[in-house]
């Protein structure tokens, strides 16, 4: 049972970071950006290139990978999403376009690096930490700590900085924010660059835990979307939703088998949306 608790913490840490990242993007541009799945994958592959192929020291390889992924994410916004603003497109069109961008990113990575599972671990395999009868690897501990740090950073940014205030205003009422002189463009650019860095770093941590394959991004982004839909826009609610989803998946995997994890997660989403009188309004407001 203690192993289930630890596994819940590990997967919840990934779900919460992705859920919060998607929530920040949603506040800025009002659609679920599926191309974030490509950035989640781009980070580890950049790391593979800088660290394993070019043999750049780990710290600098990390910085270069996160920066490059973040720039790719910003370029996607600048070259594609930004153009949609002028054409009065619906959020549905942006959502579907983001699916298209994810497909492009995933397949470009597949062509460059191949479709097979690869590893970025060329460090010595360390012994796991025993935590109340449950095993936890050092990289999993880093993932949990990273999610805690990320939550604190988001809380500070959203409540203590001018940028956070601008983003909250845009999220609440976009036209009003524009008419009140809030720097909408600058806020969106900062959001894309920041989210790009944090999500690619999460992707690198994930890759150190379970290796990399070009298709790994979609599943985790969908979990983040489930967390975001159930949790709404509140940071604490997203954290609670992440923990509940993770607990349900791990308990379900324990009782009926790990191959049904995705079914459990999406059944929760279906059940939640069917039970809500107007579920969509939660994330918007």
């Amino acid at each position: 049972m203690s192993q289930i608790f630890v596994n819940t913490l590990i997967s919840a840490s990934f779900f919460i970071v992705i859920g919060l990242a998607l929530s920040l993007i949603y506040r800025a541009v009002k659609f679920f950006d599926m191309s974030l799945a490509g950035i989640f994958v781009a980070g580890p592959y950049c790391m593979l290139f800088f660290y394993n192929s070019l043999c750049i020291p780990l710290f600098f390889a990390l910085i270069f990978s996160c920066l490059l992924s973040s720039i790719i994410y910003y370029v996607i916004y600048f070259a594609i999403y930004k153009r949609f603003e002028h054409n009065a497109h619906s959020p549905l069109s942006l959502l579907l376009a983001s699916f298209g961008i994810y497909i492009i990113l995933q397949n470009v990575i597949s062509i460059i690096f191949g479709d097979r599972i690869m590893t970025i671990r060329n460090i010595h395999i360390q012994e796991g930490i025993l935590l109340g009868g449950a095993m936890l690897t050092p990289i999993q501990l880093i993932a949990i700590l990273y999610s805690i740090i990320f939550v604190f950073i988001v809380l500070i940014i959203m409540h203590k900085t001018k940028y956070g205030l601008c983003l909250r205003t845009i999220g609440e009422n976009f036209p009003l924010a524009q008419s009140l002189g809030v720097s909408v463009k600058k806020t969106i650019v900062i959001t894309y660059l920041t989210v790009g860095i944090f999500v690619s770093l999460l992707g690198i941590i994930y890759a150190y835990d379970v290796d990399i394959v070009p298709t790994m991004g979609m599943n985790i982004i969908m979990m983040g979307i489930i967390v975001m839909i159930i949790g709404g826009n509140g940071i604490m609610k997203i954290i609670i939703a992440g923990i509940i989803l993770s607990l349900a998946i791990n308990l379900g995997a324990w009782y009926i088998g790990s191959e049904w994890k995705e079914v459990i997660a999406f059944a929760i989403l279906l059940f939640y949306l069917l039970m809500q009188p107007r579920a969509s309004h939660k994330a918007v407001n």
């Binding site: 619906s90 999406f266 989403l269 279906l270 809500q276 969509s280």
Partner: peptide
Amino acid sequence: FKVEKQYFLFITFAFQVI
């Protein structure tokens, strides 16, 4: 009949995955 179009897309996505 309950949710917006963006959310309906995720409902169909969930059905597809299941």
